[in-house]
Write a protein that binds this DNA or RNA. Structure first.
Lengths: 193, 193
DNA sequence: GCGTTTCTGAACCAATCGGTTCAGAACAAC
DNA sequence: GTTGTTCTGAACCGATTGGTTCAGAAACGC
């Protein structure tokens, strides 16, 4: 029995996510946030706490909607080749989608926040390990199935493929040319026959 | 016939470079700079102009000392395999050197500055293309010499290897484990037989 | 309608931001 | 030592930062 919130929390959070994604954490002021989210200052503080909390919630949203899909792709893949191809294609699609900011929020902030906020960096690190692990397990399944040679170091190869996805996001911030990024993914795929 | 500068410009610039490298452009205040450089505020403005100019000069220094060496490695390599190995090894060495901040100043700022400062982003982009080109030319030489199969797309492979180097810098900001990064480089090298 | 609760916009806070000014110390040439 | 120049530290600037407060509008159950 009270006045209901005039804005949808998730909609507002999505706007905040876009802002952080585009400008980075440090360059985004609370005024930038309230403007993008279309809410007042006090509403923001009442609903979320402070700027750090908004960022944490925005990152949660990103991981839930974007990163999680990639892990799903790896876990449900029927072959290493198909899984890696779809994994990289998803990275490229998000990185170059004109409806969303360039690159990847996680990669952007991983490079920005370290050396400043220790805890946030650690959260990111542990999150990134989930994808590392999913990639490694996919390659191990492929090795067991005979798709991949027993002699290859799956841990190293898994991390290398994840590194390529990071590199794609860095390049997406520089030129944002879909075809170029796709050719990079193809070159990486050559590793899998 | 005047009072000489009490600080060495390049030494001070190197300190500024480290600060930007560690904290990023936005998170670094002018006070951070003067403290790290060991000079007064007005000395900084008299000698360099403003914060943006200090950053530009620091970036110049980085490119001159760090990036240029990588291009040299690629241009003087005797084989694609040796060149790429040394190229990636240099990236890893710099990214994990305890005497310098983690990662790569160019990669860090490429992700931070875009969408904020257009011109600076463009300068970075054109700089990065120098390394792209050197890598491509190395692979083309290898192809002409028969080291690399004629069927491979050298442009794509070159960009893929550069993307791996970017990915290595992202990972260096996350964990900074030299051995892990080296194994990634080894996995990428497998592409060259 | 009423009363209660919660949200909201605007005013406000100290602190810090990038940037400027200036009086005087420090040094080189003579 | 004097002169002429330049560097330096500190005080200062308006603007903006992240964050708080509060009076009143708005919406619910009744």
């Amino acid at each position: 029995m009270a006045r209901p919130r005039a804005f949808d929390e998730e909609t507002a959070l999505r706007k905040a996510m876009d802002t952080f994604w585009t400008k980075g954490f440090e360059a985004t002021s609370v005024s930038d946030l309230t403007e993008a989210m279309g809410i007042g200052r006090s509403s923001l503080y009442a609903a979320f706490g402070d700027k750090d909390a908004v960022f944490a919630r925005a990152m949660e949203l990103y991981v839930r909607e974007v990163s999680a899909e990639r892990v799903r792709i790896l876990r449900t893949a029927e072959s290493a080749r198909q899984g890696v191809r779809d994994f990289l294609a998803h990275h490229i699609r998000v990185a170059t989608d004109p409806r969303t900011p360039a690159g990847c929020l996680v990669v952007n902030t991983a490079l920005e926040i370290d050396g400043v906020a220790e805890e946030a960096a650690e959260r990111l690190t542990s999150r990134s390990k989930i994808a590392d692990q999913a990639m490694r397990e996919l390659l191990e399944r492929a090795q067991a199935a005979g798709e991949l040679d027993r002699s290859v170091d799956v841990r190293a190869l898994a991390l290398m493929l994840v590194a390529v996805s990071y590199g794609i996001h860095v390049m997406a911030r520089m030129h944002r040319d879909r075809k170029t990024l796709q050719s990079i993914a193809d070159a990486a795929l050559a590793q899998l026959g």
